[in-house]
Amino acid sequence: MGLIHIELFTTLDHVGQAPGGPDEDPEGFPFGGWQAPLMDDVAGAQVDAAYEGTDALLLGRRTYDIFAAYWPQVEDNPFATLFNSIPKYVASRGTPDLPWAKSTQLGPDLPGAVREIRDRHQHVKVVGSLDLVQTLLREKLFDRLDLWVHPIVLGIGKKVFDEGAVPTNVTLLEPPVASPRGTVLLRYGLADGIPATGDMSAPRRDAGGEG
């Protein structure tokens, strides 16, 4: 069985809308392209490494349209070579035109379709696609969650964790790494169960004896 990887750029207040440019998702959002001033070589290398071994993309309709209008026109770029050559699976409630080569629309049973994709591929990447991401988080249909957390607060915009999020445990897969401009990569894996609770006022025993 393969792995579903969610790759997201977010602000400190968890806004994930339109990081790449002002025309990406402009409706009611004045900060399109907020990621560009914060990119540096370290974060760029992290993004490059994250896509090594990718053999399929799972995208929402809006992200698909943006990618399909851009990547087929790009030459001499490793991301273009990768994205243009691998299967693209699109989640949409409508009947979209899918002109990008190797594109397939998923059926109405999204959880079932995602499980089939996971059985068919080893490393499936979910890029952007916040509505789709929230469904995957709610259904716990992901295996890895990579969050590049940028040192800004926007106070407006679509968020990674929105209404409908469910209690979920994740485990940190590797130590966080900060880039020179302050972006921190947090790499998590889905864990079993739901978050536990406790009482911080209760007596505790420390390693050296009674607390």
Rank of each mutant, 00 (worst) to 15 (best):
residue 199 D to M: 00
residue 10 T to L: 09
residue 86 I to C: 03
residue 166 V to C: 06
residue 12 L to V: 13
residue 162 D to P: 11
residue 6 I to W: 01
residue 31 F to W: 05
residue 23 D to Q: 10
residue 37 P to R: 09
residue 66 I to Q: 14
residue 153 V to R: 07
residue 174 E to W: 11
residue 106 L to Y: 03
residue 23 D to R: 08
residue 172 L to E: 10
residue 2 G to S: 01
residue 197 T to P: 01
residue 113 A to R: 02
residue 36 A to I: 03
residue 72 P to G: 08
residue 46 Q to S: 13
residue 94 G to T: 09
residue 177 V to P: 10
residue 33 G to F: 04
residue 143 D to S: 05
residue 99 P to E: 08
residue 92 S to P: 10
residue 63 T to E: 05
residue 105 Q to N: 05
residue 125 K to Y: 14
residue 86 I to P: 03
residue 47 V to C: 11
residue 106 L to M: 12
residue 55 D to H: 00
residue 209 G to N: 01
residue 1 M to L: 11
residue 99 P to R: 10
residue 124 V to F: 06
residue 152 I to T: 14
residue 168 T to P: 05
residue 1 M to G: 02
residue 102 K to F: 03
residue 155 G to N: 08
residue 87 P to E: 01
residue 194 I to C: 06
residue 155 G to S: 08
residue 152 I to E: 07
residue 169 N to W: 00
residue 207 A to L: 13
residue 5 H to K: 11
residue 203 P to V: 05
residue 128 G to D: 02
residue 143 D to Y: 02
residue 38 L to P: 00
residue 158 K to Q: 10
residue 186 L to A: 10
residue 84 N to L: 03
residue 47 V to N: 08
residue 131 D to W: 03
residue 32 G to K: 03
residue 170 V to F: 08
residue 4 I to Q: 01
residue 75 E to P: 12
residue 40 D to Y: 04
residue 177 V to T: 14
residue 73 Q to N: 14
residue 27 E to G: 13
residue 64 Y to Q: 00
residue 146 D to S: 10
residue 10 T to E: 02
residue 125 K to T: 15
residue 145 L to N: 05
residue 150 H to A: 12
residue 30 P to A: 12
residue 51 Y to F: 15
residue 77 N to R: 13
residue 24 E to Y: 05
residue 180 P to I: 12
residue 61 R to L: 10
residue 185 L to H: 15
residue 155 G to V: 08
residue 129 S to K: 00
residue 69 A to E: 12
residue 26 P to W: 06
residue 9 F to I: 10
residue 151 P to Q: 06
residue 120 R to H: 04
residue 107 G to M: 04
residue 44 G to I: 05
residue 142 F to W: 04
residue 154 L to T: 12
residue 197 T to S: 02
residue 71 W to P: 07
residue 66 I to S: 14
residue 211 G to F: 01
residue 60 G to W: 01
residue 203 P to F: 08
residue 54 T to S: 13
residue 119 D to E: 15
residue 33 G to M: 04
residue 75 E to D: 15
residue 196 A to K: 01
residue 173 L to D: 14
